[in-house]
Amino acid sequence: MEPFTIITGPAAPLLRRDIDTDVIIRIERLTQLPRRELGRYALEALRGLDFVLDRPPFRGAPILLAGANFGCGSSREGAVWALQETGLRSIIAPSFGDIFFANCFHNGMLPVVLPEAAVASLAAQAAHGAPVTVDLRQCRVIAPDGAAHPFAIDSLRRELLLEGVDELGLTLRRLAEIAAWQQADAVRRPWCAPNKQGHVR
């Protein structure tokens, strides 16, 4: 996974609240297209003649400024892939859908939670493409006018993202510990094993 430390660039404003993952990427696009082709279908239901990610200076922008509850709905990780394929590396919003939020971290995308007023202020300043900086080392977003907006982030998630570490690799080192837990659990909860008679054919 690509590490995330600091990025600077245009921040595209898309402040409508409750943009769900169905709107971020339609399900048929995920069944029909390889990942690298998803970018141009990201947010297609919202794309009109003047869609923000299709016009300069925001085409290929690394930062999205979004509304509350961004990424609510379906668990499809393809929503993160589609946004990534447009060039985005970080999304700043007042709140995110829980599953989308977790999916971001598994793909090197940094979701930043800032208060609604801060997102609005960034959007106003960045409206013509003035650069915004997202700094994961210092845990702050720097507005075009130099104002710093500190953000809170879970320390474990931050470490993994800074190093680009894949969680699965870490857990695979614990397989013996997991096997021991499973063995003890089989004694503790004998009822938990699926009934072997149950398999219907």
């Binding site: 990780e77 969680e167 997991i178």
Partner: peptide, 23 residues
Amino acid sequence: AFGIGSSELVHVLATQTLRQKKP
């Protein structure tokens, strides 16, 4: 019970566990 994305899905297949933060 909860929904997961593709990365977490592979994590469960390979380890029968997930890393989760208590909500």
